[in-house]
Computed example of a mutant assay.
Amino acid sequence: MKRPSFKLILSLTLVAVFFILVNRYFLHDAVNELAASLIKKPAVALFRQFNKARSFTDALKNWKQLAKDNEQIRSKNADLTYELLKLEAIKDENLFLKKALNLPTPANAQLIYGGIYSFNFDPPGYSLLLNLGSASGVNVGDIVVNGEGVLVGQIKEVFKNYSRINFVTDPMFRVAAKARGSKTQGIANGASQDGLYLNLVTNAEEIKEGDIIVTNGSDIFPAALIIGTVEHIEINESRIFKKIRVKPAADGYSLGKVIVIKNNAHQ
Rank of each mutant, 00 (worst) to 15 (best):
Lys247Arg: 09
Glu157Met: 11
Leu66Ser: 10
Pro4Asp: 11
Asn32Lys: 13
Pro248Thr: 05
Glu205Thr: 10
Gln193Tyr: 02
Leu130Pro: 06
Leu10His: 13
Gly125Leu: 13
Leu66Ile: 12
Tyr82Cys: 11
Gly149His: 04
Lys208Ser: 12
Ser182Arg: 05
Ile233Phe: 03
Val168Phe: 10
Ser182Lys: 12
Phe221Lys: 11
Glu205Gly: 00
Tyr162His: 13
Phe47Trp: 08
Lys98Trp: 12
Ile73Phe: 02
Arg54Asp: 07
Thr202Ile: 06
Val158Lys: 00
Lys243Asp: 00
Glu237Leu: 10
Ala249Glu: 01
Ile187Phe: 10
Thr215Ser: 04
Tyr253Ile: 14
Leu87Asn: 14
Glu234Tyr: 09
Glu88Asn: 10
Gln154Lys: 07
Lys68Ser: 10
Asn23Gln: 09
Gln65Val: 14
Tyr162Ser: 07
Trp63His: 15
Pro123Ala: 05
Asn161Ile: 15
Asn32Gly: 15
Gly141Trp: 03
Thr202Phe: 07
Leu97Val: 13
Lys183His: 14
Lys76Asn: 14
Asn51Ala: 10
Ala59Asp: 08
Lys242Gly: 01
Pro104Asp: 00
Leu95Thr: 15
Ser254Arg: 10
Ala179Trp: 01
Leu130Gly: 00
Ala179Val: 03
Glu209Lys: 05
Ser118Asp: 09
Leu128Tyr: 03
Arg74Met: 03
Ile20Gln: 11
Gln72Pro: 07
Phe121Cys: 11
Gly125Phe: 15
Leu103Asn: 01
Ser11Asp: 14
Leu225Arg: 00
Arg245Ser: 07
Gln72Arg: 14
Arg180Lys: 14
Pro4Val: 04
Phe19Leu: 01
Val150Asp: 00
Asn203Lys: 04
Lys64Val: 15
Ile220Ser: 09
Gln154Asn: 09
Phe119Val: 13
Tyr25Lys: 02
Phe26Gly: 08
Ala67Met: 11
Val140Arg: 02
Ile90Asp: 12
Tyr162Cys: 11
Pro104Glu: 00
Ile227Gln: 02
Leu103Thr: 04
Leu129Glu: 03
Pro248Leu: 00
Leu85Glu: 15
Ser55Phe: 15
Arg54Phe: 04
Leu103Gly: 01
Leu34Lys: 09
Pro171Gly: 05
Ser75Ile: 09
Asn131Arg: 10
Ala53Asp: 08
Leu95Ser: 15
Ile9Leu: 08
Val152Asn: 08
Ala43Leu: 08
Ser136Gly: 06
Ile244Asn: 03
Leu21Asn: 07
Ala43Gln: 06
Gln185Met: 14
Leu80Gly: 02
Asp219Tyr: 06
Glu93Trp: 03
Gln193Val: 07
Pro222Asn: 01
Ala250Phe: 05
Lys99Pro: 01
Ile116Tyr: 03
Phe167Val: 09
Ile235Met: 01
Pro222Tyr: 02
Ile112Pro: 06
Asn263Gly: 03
Leu111Arg: 00
Val201Cys: 04
Leu85Pro: 14
Ala100Ser: 06
Ala177Trp: 03
Phe96Asp: 04
Phe173Asn: 04
Gln185Val: 06
Leu225Glu: 02
Leu97Lys: 15
Val175Glu: 06
Lys257Asn: 12
Leu151Ala: 07
Glu237Gly: 04
Asp251Phe: 04
Glu206Asp: 13
Asn146Arg: 06
Phe173Trp: 04
Pro124Ser: 01
Leu129Cys: 06
Pro4Asn: 05
Val17Arg: 09
Lys99Cys: 03
Gln49Asp: 02
Ala30His: 14
Val201Ala: 07
Gly210Phe: 02
Leu12Trp: 08
Gln72Ile: 15
Ser75Gly: 07
Lys7Met: 11
Glu83Thr: 10
Gln185Trp: 12
Asn108Arg: 13
Ile20Met: 11
Leu225Met: 01
